[in-house]
Simulated scan of single mutants.
Amino acid sequence: MDERAPLQVVALISGSGSNLQALMDAQRQGAPIRLQAVISNTAEAYGLERARHQGIPTEVLSHRGYADRDAFDADLAALIDRHNPELVVLAGFMRILTPGFVNRYAGRMMNIHPSLLPKFRGLNTHQRALDAGEREHGASVHFVTAELDGGPVIIQARVPVLADDDAGSLAARVLKQEHRLYPTAVGWFAEGRLRLGEDGRAHLDGRALQAPMLMEAAAAPEPAPS
C-alpha cells in the first residue's frame, strides 16, 4: 500500500477559481493532495468563497500600493511559505511573476494556460486562435519558468474550432478540458511520477517528455436505455 502523505499545495488565484474548484473536487474524491491555502491578489475573487466553503484557509494580498513587482513578490513568497507547500499552483493568477519568485519555487510551481502552447502565450488566447484561423485549440499545463507561459509543457488537451465559434463558446469548451487537465498533472506530481528535470524538461515516470502528453477527449455518455 502506498503510504505517501498527501501533497501540500498552495493555490494562487485572481478570479472565479473554476480550476481551483476542479482541484478541490479531486481532493474530495481521494486525490493525494491537500490544499493548505488559497491566496488571491484581489479580495473580490470568487475563488476565495469556493475555498471557504470547503474549509480551506484563504489569504488576500493586494498588489496595489507596492512600489514594484519585486516587493510584492517578496511578501507573496513569505505568505506562501507560511503554509510550507510542496507545490504552488497558479489557477488563474493574473500576475507576471518576477524571476526571483519563479526561481524560489523552481520545479514545484505549475500553471494552466488556455492554449496549445507554445501557441498564443499571454492573454486573449481564444480570440487570437479564431483570428489566426486555427482548426484546433486547447489548454496546457506546464511547469513555471521565468519565461512567460514558456515553461516545459506537461500535458495538453485539444478541442476543435467550430465554424460558428466565437471567443466565448470556444473558451467554454476549452475550460471543460482545463478542469480535467489540472487535477491529472497535479496528481502525477503528488504520486512522485512527475518532476522537472535538470535538463529543463518535464519527466514522467522517469523519462523526459519529448512532447506534451495528450489527454484524450472524454468519452461520450452512453445513451439511456429506451
Results as ranks from 00 to 15, higher is better:
Ala129Phe: 03
Glu136Gly: 03
Asp164Asn: 02
Pro118Trp: 07
His203Ser: 11
Met213Tyr: 00
Glu86Val: 00
His203Lys: 12
Ala106Trp: 14
Gly100His: 07
Asn103Ala: 15
Arg4His: 13
Thr98Arg: 06
His142Lys: 11
Ala219Arg: 12
Ala190Ser: 08
Leu123Ala: 15
Leu209Thr: 10
Pro152Phe: 07
Arg173Trp: 04
Gly187Pro: 08
Arg135Tyr: 00
Gly168Ala: 11
Leu79Ala: 00
Ile56Gly: 03
Thr58Tyr: 04
Gly30Ala: 03
Leu181Lys: 03
Ala202Leu: 12
Ala51Asp: 09
Glu3Pro: 07
Phe101Ile: 09
Ala190Lys: 06
Ile56Tyr: 12
Leu196Phe: 02
Gly197Cys: 12
Ala31Arg: 08
Phe101Arg: 09
Val102Ile: 09
Pro152Gln: 05
Ala74Cys: 00
Ile96Ala: 15
Phe93Pro: 07
Thr145Cys: 13
Asp131Cys: 06
Leu148Lys: 06
Ile154Asp: 13
Leu20Pro: 12
Gln210Gly: 15
Arg158Lys: 13
Arg207His: 11
Leu175Lys: 12
Arg4Lys: 14
Ile112Tyr: 08
Arg95Val: 11
Asp205Thr: 07
Arg195Asp: 08
Gly47Pro: 10
Ala139Tyr: 04
Ala167Pro: 08
Thr125Pro: 04
Pro57Ala: 07
Leu196Ile: 10
Ser14Leu: 08
Glu147Ser: 12
Glu59Gly: 00
Leu12Thr: 02
Asn124Leu: 03
Ala43Glu: 15
Asp81Val: 07
Asn84Asp: 14
Val161Met: 08
Val161Gly: 06
Glu86Ala: 11
Ile155Pro: 04
Ala45Leu: 02
Ile39Val: 13
Ser115His: 01
Ala5Met: 09
Val153Asp: 08
Gln36Asn: 10
Asp131Lys: 05
Met215Phe: 00
Gly151Ala: 01
Gln27Pro: 00
Glu147Trp: 00
Asn84Gln: 14
Arg180Pro: 12
Ser18Pro: 09
Gly200Asn: 08
Ile155Phe: 03
Ala11Thr: 15
Asp25Arg: 13
